[in-house]
Design a binder for these strands. Sequence first.
RNA 1: CCAGGGGGCCGGGCAGCCGCGUCCUUCGACAGGCUCAGGAUGAGCGGGUUUGAAGGCCGAGGAAAGUCCGGGCUCCACGAAGCAAGGGUGGCGGGUAACGCCCGCCGAGUGAGGGCUUUCGGGCCUGAGAUCAGGGAAAGUGCCACAGAGAGUAUACCGCCGAUGGCCCCUAAAGGGCACAGGCAAGGGUGAAAGGGUGCGGCAAGAGCGCACCGGGGUUCUGGUAACAGCGCCCGCAUGGCAAACCCCACCCGGAGCAAGGCCAAAUAGGGGUCUCGCGCCGAGAGGCAGGAGUGUUUCGCUCCGAGAGACCCGGGUUGGCUGCUUGAGCUGCGGAGCAAUCCGUAGCCUAGAUGAAUGGCUGCCCCCGCAGCGCUGGUCGCAAGAUACCGGUUGCGGGACAGAACCCGGCUUACAGGUCCCCUGGCAUC
RNA 2: CGGGGAGUGGCGCAGCCUGGUAGCGCAUCUGUUUUGGGAACAGAGGGUCGCAGGUUCGAAUCCUGUCUCCCCGA
Length: 122
Amino acid sequence: MTIEVLTKRADFLLANKGLRNARPGFVLLTRPNQGKGKRFGITVTKKVGNAVVRNRMKRRFRELLRDALPAEGLADHDHVLVGRVGGIARDYHRMRKELTHALAAASEGKGDRPRKPRKPRK
RNA sequence: CCAGGGGGCCGGGCAGCCGCGUCCUUCGACAGGCUCAGGAUGAGCGGGUUUGAAGGCCGAGGAAAGUCCGGGCUCCACGAAGCAAGGGUGGCGGGUAACGCCCGCCGAGUGAGGGCUUUCGGGCCUGAGAUCAGGGAAAGUGCCACAGAGAGUAUACCGCCGAUGGCCCCUAAAGGGCACAGGCAAGGGUGAAAGGGUGCGGCAAGAGCGCACCGGGGUUCUGGUAACAGCGCCCGCAUGGCAAACCCCACCCGGAGCAAGGCCAAAUAGGGGUCUCGCGCCGAGAGGCAGGAGUGUUUCGCUCCGAGAGACCCGGGUUGGCUGCUUGAGCUGCGGAGCAAUCCGUAGCCUAGAUGAAUGGCUGCCCCCGCAGCGCUGGUCGCAAGAUACCGGUUGCGGGACAGAACCCGGCUUACAGGUCCCCUGGCAUC
RNA sequence: CGGGGAGUGGCGCAGCCUGGUAGCGCAUCUGUUUUGGGAACAGAGGGUCGCAGGUUCGAAUCCUGUCUCCCCGA
């Protein structure tokens, strides 16, 4: 079974309305997607660092998801990892365990307080 | 060997497990297509925005960065040249596809260091290197605040003089005084800058007024492709600074950018407008007539057809794919020309093409650096306890920069741990 | 890829084109007034002009490089 990659901006915006599980290195967003299979996406903003730092973080996240999703991922859900500054130098194996716990929490329906929709500033 | 300065090159290596991307090979699956045969359907050809497996090759940088210049390439516009506007560049020569880049030379100020001298404040000479937006200021316009008498047609506040003329004193004459006329620009003072500098002469006092040297301007000749340099001669020489103020001179520049541009698929309207060309006949056109087809109640009537194509614009739809896309002012070696930048010849090589964007994740060993009441140990020092600036081994922990191709090149600029090589100047030691 | 704009006291802005004195409003502090506060009035303090070079006698201003932020077009 193949795992698809999210490419549309709209998918990311929808995932933002799902469950949030924050860890020191990342934020995991999960949301059911009406039977489209396991999908994942990665968001690393410019605030995290320059291009080298951002690319390296995305590669490490891909490696994490490649290892974790087949066994621990939620079926028919979109998974989005959002990079945080703490994830730059964090140990890989430690983040791997944190991802396991975050996925377990998400499968039980637990999550952090959902973020308020951002108001358009005048 | 050390110190200072300048420049070039490299910018971690090896291995294991798991993984990513392009391309190639092999074996498969599958949609649509064509041909043949045909009852369902089958066989063959050929093939891909589909897809699986195995194997193989290759896979970020010196700045890939900033996007500051110059090109290639593509489309658009346009007779050429020139002019105008706007922008850019600016010593000379060379290199280059081109440049605001590079090399060499010239000039300017600067100047590590060295030598000589000294009244120890300094003075003189030499001078590697780096730096320079380095055309024009007697083409013109403008500006130079404050201070100052005067700031660009120079000026006269303090000051100096007052020879000559004037007035006064004393007079035989000589002389003395005043600072009125007038002369001067040396000194003081202001300033960033005061209309060449130093010295001697000269003078009433002064002044390029005269002379010597330095500086400056002009010019003959010589050397050099040239910028320019040198020698001689002439001019006593008012004619600052700013052009990164306007400007003048010389030279250069059409515009947009790979989301350029081309092709395919899908999708909606089977849209509207303008213009051009065309149409069997008429008409600017709408349309009418001829003609054709169908039909019926058949000398006639009804319906339909009876010319479209191209360009641009508006509206609507699409946010998919292929191509451009990596062989190029290419890289490496050798030989040659040149002081050099660079060029020429020759042999070999093919060396990233992603697109929510590949080139990674984890680990071990080696290398370099730092830290460990000297951690342990051998030197070293100390009688010893011990000490540890220095040298060697070893253990543990930590660290190894700046930074990610996006059409492609040539530069510039900026960031950068560490390593390595070369050149220049000087010092010390040895031969 | 292309284009435009901004950076000046704590905050919001002038000054820049045409170079010599950095100014305005709000805020802060002090005083007067008031029983006290507010308001009003009078006065005071506070600025590396984003950073680094250069041109100039002199730079917030001119030139070059650089950093950060914002906006627009394809």
